[in-house]
Amino acid sequence: MPSRKAIIGTASTLSVLLAWEWASRSGLVSERFLPAPSTVLATLWSMIFGRDLLYHAGISTLRVWGAFTLAALMAVPIGIAMGSFRWVGAALEPIVDFIRYLPVPALVPLSIIWFGVGEGTKIFLLWLGTFFQLVLLVADDVRRVPVEFHETAMTVGAPWWRRLTDVSFPSMLPTLVDNMRITLGWCWTYLIIAEIVAANSGLGFVIWQARRFFQTPEVMAGVVTIGIIGLATDQLVRALHRRWFGYLVR
C-alpha cells in the first residue's frame, strides 16, 4: 500500500500537470510561451536523438560532480580543522565569510580572465559556489559534536588526532552527507550560469541555443532534464543516507 503522503504528493503533482496541459491546449496561454507538458515531453524524447541531449546532460553532470568532489575533498578536512581548533577557525573565518557572500555570477568575468572559456572556468565557478558554503557547514557540524563524546574519548586514552578520526568524523557524518546533498543542488545553479556564459556543450548551452531560435519546448525540455537529474540525485543520496545511518532511527 502506498502511504497517504505518497498518494497526496502524486495527486497534487498530477493536478498541476493537468491544469498546465489544459491551459496550453485550450489557448489560454500561447504554446509559444508555455508549451504543454506533453509537448515538452515529446521534445525531450526527440532531443535525445536529434540534439545529443544525453551527451550534454552527461557533460553537465560530470562538471557538477567533478567540481563538487574537489570542493568537498577540500572543505571536509579544512572545515574539521576550523571547527576543532579555535585558532584555525579564527584565522580562516573572516576570509571564508567574505567570499561566501560574493555572488558567483559577479565573478564570471574575473574567472574568464583567469581561466579562459574552457573547463577551468566552469570548475572554478562551481568550486567557488560550494567550497566556501560547505566549509562553514562542516565547521559548524564539528562544533556540534557533543562534548561528552570528546571527553569520553579522552578518558579512554585517545590522543587528539584519534578524536578527530574516531569521534568527530563519525559523529558528524550523517549531517555532512545531508549538507553535501543540499550543496550539490546549488552546484547546478552555478553550472547553468557558467554554461550559458562560456560553453559549447552541456545543458546550459543547449537551453541557451534553443532560446536563440525561440524553441520554447526545447528550452523547457532542457530545464526539465536538469530537474530530473536533480531529483534523481537527491533521492539516491537520501536512500544511501537511510541505508548508512539506519542507527539513527529510534
Partner: peptide, 10 residues
C-alpha cells in the same frame, strides 16, 4: 560516566 547518554550512536 555522564548524565547524558554518551554511548556513540554509530
Amino acid at each position: 560516566v555522564f548524565q547524558s547518554y554518551s554511548a556513540f550512536p554509530w
